[in-house]
Design a protein around this nucleic acid. Sequence first.
DNA 1: GCGACAG
DNA 2: ATCTTGTCGC
Length: 224
Amino acid sequence: MDINALREEQIDKASQVVRHDDMPFEQPAFIAGADVGFEQGGDVTRAALVVLAYPSLELVEYRVARIPTVMPYIPGFLSFRESPALLAAWEMLSHRPELLFVDGHGVSHPRRLGVASHFGLLVNVPTIGVAKKRLCGQVAPLAAEVGSQQPLMDRSEQIGWVWRSKARCNPLFVSTGHRVAIDSALLWVMRCMRGYRLPEPTRWADAVASNRPAFQRWQRQHRL
DNA sequence: GCGACAG
DNA sequence: ATCTTGTCGC
């Protein structure tokens, strides 16, 4: 794997990312969430995709894809490692979500092509990046109150929002993935909150990927 | 050279 | 990301 070639590819693809709203819907019927994990000591990449009805935010579909891991984790190149599995899971979906929340950054990336942007471009779907940690950029101190927010700045441009989604919890890093404006991205995340630190699409994707009790309960009353 | 560094 | 028990606090 040639990091320099990948870097060039990022620069090229970043120029194709759409940072304004280009969502063909008044109100989406389905919003999806994506999360990627690893098994077998990292040899297997596991991608979980969930589809929630909007605005009820009820889980209506979930898919998990497992493929051989293609690349090691290198900060700044996460999308090349996770996209293949995400694509496999995406092709298994029976629903057609109008919006997708991806676990990780969107344009708040050194070359403006985080996994949310890269994948959004790949499947041409509006995406939003929801990350739990900063990758690049600077932020002013964030107030302790729930709801406080600060722009994430890098090279004199705003690349995202740092938002305290819940009291006493670390903030979320929200950014444009593809076809969703930066302010809209934060608004959509806000609309998908149900009292937890993470928005429902991301939270469910994580629950499915890790087979959490909440997901096991859902399965029990929807399959048996 | 040193520190930072999504998942 | 993953390996892992208890523990402090609302």
